[in-house]
Design a binder for these strands. Structure first.
Length: 481
RNA sequence: GCUCGUAUAGUGUAGUGGCCCAUCAUGAAGGACUCUCAUUCCUUCGACCCGGGUUCAAAUCCCGGUACGAGCACCA
């Protein structure tokens, strides 16, 4: 039993979760619904979703929409995001929680905090408090009586205080080593008259709003979240929230972190930056194939399964990583190749009259590895073909057809030499079309001729010797090689 | 500045004291198959940040350094 331990093998899939014994795990993915989901969000969905699936647990989709001023939510995102999650996972989230529906729960916990003396209403300005934080000294508001805190809390709720006048803080310890943890703010006021919440049912209803660390912590507890997988930029959040959990007597969930991911070809896109570029017309919309949004990837023919495999392969390390798009494309190719019918697209077409023994038609396989996909019938009523200009300088063999000699004379049908093989279309069985290349800088449109076919829009094909492309209303959008 | 974190081939990743002159994928190069510059298959290339220490034994533990990243918001 001890002998012959196996040669080291790479672990398959995601690392094991700690603390999973005898309980149903509950995970959550919590974006701010302030726009469509991006490539980076996909990681959160895929990793949380995969763990939930592996352990037959629950995946909660939670909208952390508690900021109406700095990062105000977008109404359409509430419908869009669940659809994007479902597309990516192939199943919907088990439960959707909207923070703005649950303000009263957060108030209850804020009041409990005040009543039990581990929270207080602080009337220092942000600036003034920063000085206390830096000098590790208590602010005067810290020692107020419970009654006085309750009174101030009510003045927050009824709007006697204005945004900036008062916040509720969690009492931690002003001498804590980590400055980020010192009496951190839990709830603040927002002017929802000027900046109403976009959801009509919420609108200007509340003046006091929880901040992420408080809202998220309380909600995780209320929903029974067992495992949190989040960016390592939120490590201090974990520490802040753990302090709050101790006050409440709760046990903090198991937490895993990941680092930042950059894609070589995409630098840094932020939601706000993308929004601006779309508004000024640089991009067609959120679904522009050049954009690192879920929608953009969909437009570009990236399969949900490829995205899942891609993220699982990257795993959940805390390293900041930078990955090439080729890695994602490689996953995508594996999924689409068997089902992608082959077609010829001729860029910069050069017409050649063919002479000699021209048949009425030839049949070419739809897919070289799958005979059952049938044949494409190419007709020669006009006795002419198109080849790419770049291919017109030497003697070649027309793929699946015959050798092409000087002056357009057809040569041997059998392959008799090693001359290079090129793709081509017949004039009869082809039509004008466009190859669309989504380059980072600009969309490139290359006109040419596509082999006639009746594939519906959305079909993923392989343009021989060019790459995989998806059929759109405007032509063939090149996905990747 | 204070606090926290991470460092394995070009890019990712496995590995928690001996199976490791280090796993797998991707990439690059070459080859086989193929009437595609595709797919599939094979081969090759290529890495434990640096310096100490602990130990019979360290990629794995400790200390120091360096690099990179993050937090210190009444944003998420």
């Amino acid at each position: 039993m001890l002998e012959g331990r196996q040669k080291q093998e790479k672990r398959e899939g995601l690392p094991d979760l700690k603390n999973v014994q005898d309980k149903k795990i509950v995970l959550r993915f919590a974006p701010n619904p302030n726009g469509p989901l991006s490539f980076g969000h996909a990681r959160g969905i895929v990793i949380n979703g995969t763990y939930a699936k592996e352990h037959a647990g629950t995946l909660i989709l939670r909208f952390d929409d508690t900021d109406t001023t700095v990062k105000p939510p977008t109404l359409s995102a509430y419908d869009l995001i669940p659809e994007e999650v479902e597309w990516l996972l192939g199943r919907p989230a088990d439960r959707i929680v909207i923070a703005s529906n649950r303000i009263s729960q957060y108030y209850e916990h804020a009041e409990k905090m005040l009543n039990e003396g581990f929270g207080y209403v602080c009337k220092c300005s942000a600036d003034a408090f920063r000085k206390f934080r830096e000098s590790k000294t208590n602010c005067p508001c810290r020692d107020k009586s419970i009654e006085q805190n309750q009174e101030d809390w009510n003045k927050m709720l009824d709007g006697t205080y204005k945004p900036g006048d008062a916040v509720v803080r969690v009492k931690t310890d002003m001498t804590l080593k980590n400055p980020a943890l010192r009496d951190w703010p839990a709830l603040r006021m927002q002017d929802t008259e000027i900046n109403p919440h976009p959801r009509p049912s919420i609108g200007s209803k509340y003046k006091v709003w929880p901040l992420l660390d408080f809202q998220s912590a309380v909600e995780d507890y209320l929903q029974g979240v067992t495992h949190i997988i989040r960016g390592k930029d939120l490590m201090d959040s974990t520490r802040k929230q753990t302090l709050l959990y101790e006050h409440f007597g709760w046990t903090y969930p198991e937490t895993i972190y990941w680092g930042r991911v950059k894609v070589h070809e995409w630098g840094g896109f932020s939601t706000s930056k993308m929004r601006a570029s779309i508004e000024n017309g640089e991009y067609q919309g959120w679904d522009d194939p050049r954009l690192p949004t879920i929608q953009g990837l969909q437009t570009r023919g990236i399969q949900a399964e490829a995205l899942r495999n891609f993220w699982v392969e990257l795993g959940v390390t805390q390293k900041d990583i930078s990955v090439p798009l080729a890695s994602l494309f490689s996953h995508n190719t594996k999924i689409i190749d068997d089902d992608a019918p082959r077609l010829s697209f001729i860029r910069n077409p050069v017409e050649i009259q063919i002479k000699g023994d021209v048949p009425s038609h030839v049949n070419i396989p739809v897919h070289p590895n799958h005979e059952d996909q049938g044949v494409r019938r190419i007709s020669f009523d006009q006795s002419s073909i198109f080849i790419e200009q770049d291919d017109s300088v030497e003697t070649y063999r027309l793929k699946e057809f015959a050798d092409l000699e000087e002056n357009g004379v057809l040569g041997s049908v059998e392959r008799t030499d090693k001359r290079p093989i090129i793709h081509w279309v017949s004039s009869t069985t082809s039509e004008e079309s466009t190859l669309i290349i989504p380059d980072q800088e600009e969309m490139k449109f290359i006109s040419g001729r596509i082999e006639t076919n009746n594939y519906p829009i959305g079909t993923i094909v392989q343009l021989e010797r060019i790459g995989y492309a998806i059929l759109t209303a405007k032509g063939y959008l090149l996905m990747h090689e």
